[in-house]
Design a protein around this nucleic acid. Sequence first.
DNA 1: GCTGGCGTTGACGTCGGGGGGAAGGTTTAC
DNA 2: GTAAACCTTCCCCCCGACGTCAACGCCAGC
Lengths: 135, 135
Amino acid sequence: MRIGELAERAGTTTRALRYYEQLGLLPARRAGNGYRAYGEEDLRLLREIRMLQDFGFGLEETRPFVECLRAGHPEGDACPASLEVYRRKLAELDECIARLADVRSQVAGQFERAVRARDELASVEQPPLCELAKE
Amino acid sequence: MRIGELAERAGTTTRALRYYEQLGLLPARRAGNGYRAYGEEDLRLLREIRMLQDFGFGLEETRPFVECLRAGHPEGDACPASLEVYRRKLAELDECIARLADVRSQVAGQFERAVRARDELASVEQPPLCELAKE
DNA sequence: GCTGGCGTTGACGTCGGGGGGAAGGTTTAC
DNA sequence: GTAAACCTTCCCCCCGACGTCAACGCCAGC
């Protein structure tokens, strides 16, 4: 299989495949004419990369998974190095979520304070027309 | 007050102040010699900008707050435009947190599956030495 | 009158990751 | 024969919020 076909079957571009090879992530055999030659195995590796990318993994973080598959394991996450990447990613996500939640609560606090201040100001400047309007 | 003093009192740099002026966010009067001249008011504006920046607001998002203060309001979030920025930011934060939480749960699922697979493999390849070891 | 410190503008660098796009050449497919 | 696909190498880009010079002006103290 040549680069164009692999790219199409994996839903990516030839440019990305050359880039992965440049990183040493997905090296290709070469045919006599210099063309990159890929097998079905490479399609599996590539799909692993794409899946992890969708999870927000960086390309370097996919490397253990790819090497694990290349070592013959049926799953890319069968190796300790891959599990370690999972753990690091989970910790990273937890920290990021916690930080965002903290910011969110601070912003929400500011927002509510501002809204209350506005309402109080409004009630001073424009008192209700009658008592019935309160209900 | 000149640019160096303002920068120091607000805990930022002269470069940042020139950048804010370039954006039209914090314009400065000029002294006769061409030096930027700031007042105490500018320090308040600048502190508002820095606080919002710490919350993760972009500089453009701080503009309504700064203009609100400049319009004479005692608080930067007393204007509807500022409240709208708060709302947008809260929605943005919520969406971001939800997305991360979703990714986190997917990654956690993958991780747990991989760990279970590894444990099962280990129990097949290395069966317990005796029944007592099970408890 | 000289040094040092602050000020001015403008232009360019950076960081990070994941490629895009064009130039210029070979090979393959119809 | 020609168009499509492939090759390599090279620079470009995105995004914001500045950092980092460069080359010069202004002013205070000694």
